[in-house]
Amino acid sequence: MTEYKLVVVGAGGVGKSALTIQLIQNHFVDEYDPTIEDSYRKQVVIDGETCLLDILDTAGQEEYSAMRDQYMRTGEGFLCVFAINNTKSFEDIHHYREQIKRVKDSEDVPMVLVGNKCDLPSRTVDTKQAQDLARSYGIPFIETSAKTRQGVDDAFYTLVREIRKHKEKMSKDGKKKKKKSKTKCVIM
């Protein structure tokens, strides 16, 4: 069974824990209790493949930012979460993405942009803004509501699919490099 290491990042209060708990335990946590770091595991079937999701729910508070490099190193894919009623959390996505790329030393890291709290009427981040940002990053965008469960499975499952595509691409690139290195030079 394939294991996928997913990391949920975003500013404090955007609903990272609520999304994760909704996926794992099928219930909505409405009281806000700032996370330092929590880890969850769940076995699911995605596109006919049974897999184990190892999900790291991270601290959004700035005082825990020193811990970010460590979990970013171990993560295979990242859910970059903002709240649709919090423009600052949307603007912060850029910083999370840049930090992930720096730590992973790669421009090509599996990510999904997630606009959470889409059940709320007080939207300050337009869907088109988020779609445009995701398009500019070359990553999928999904709106979710941890409260109603809308888009929750889709967000995590899409990230797994992005990781699969990335692994497939990397193995193809690896095979191309191996083929090239088999060419021999004969000096007579």
Rank of each mutant, 00 (worst) to 15 (best):
P110D: 01
T87V: 14
Y4L: 10
Y157C: 10
V44T: 07
E3Q: 08
V186N: 12
Q70V: 12
R41P: 00
K167S: 05
N116I: 15
K16C: 03
D30S: 12
N116S: 12
A83N: 15
Y96L: 15
D119I: 11
S106H: 12
K175E: 14
L79F: 03
Y32Q: 02
A59Q: 03
V152R: 14
R135Y: 14
V152G: 10
V112A: 03
A130K: 07
G13D: 14
L79V: 08
R68I: 15
V8W: 01
Q61C: 13
M170N: 14
E63F: 02
E98K: 02
V125I: 07
P110Y: 01
K167E: 04
K177T: 07
A134I: 11
M188R: 12
Q131S: 10
G10C: 04
Q61T: 12
Q22P: 00
M170A: 15
Q43M: 13
D30N: 11
A18M: 03
T2G: 08
R102G: 05
E107I: 08
G77V: 12
K104L: 13
S181N: 11
K165S: 06
E37C: 00
R41S: 03
V44K: 10
E49T: 07
I93F: 13
T58H: 01
E168G: 10
Y40W: 02
K165V: 09
M170W: 14
M111Q: 03
G77S: 04
H95R: 13
K167A: 05
L113T: 04
H94Q: 14
G77D: 00
A155W: 15
M170E: 11
K101V: 12
D33Q: 02
K169A: 09
S181C: 06
K147L: 04
L120I: 05
Q70E: 11
V81E: 12
V8G: 03
K177F: 08
A134K: 02
D105S: 14
G15E: 01
S181Q: 10
L6E: 02
Q22Y: 03
E31D: 10
V103C: 14
E76K: 02
D108S: 07
R73V: 11
G151L: 10
E31G: 03
V109K: 06
R164I: 13
I142C: 14
D132N: 07
K101D: 03
V125C: 08
L113S: 02
V29L: 08
T183I: 06
A59K: 01
G75I: 11
P140H: 03
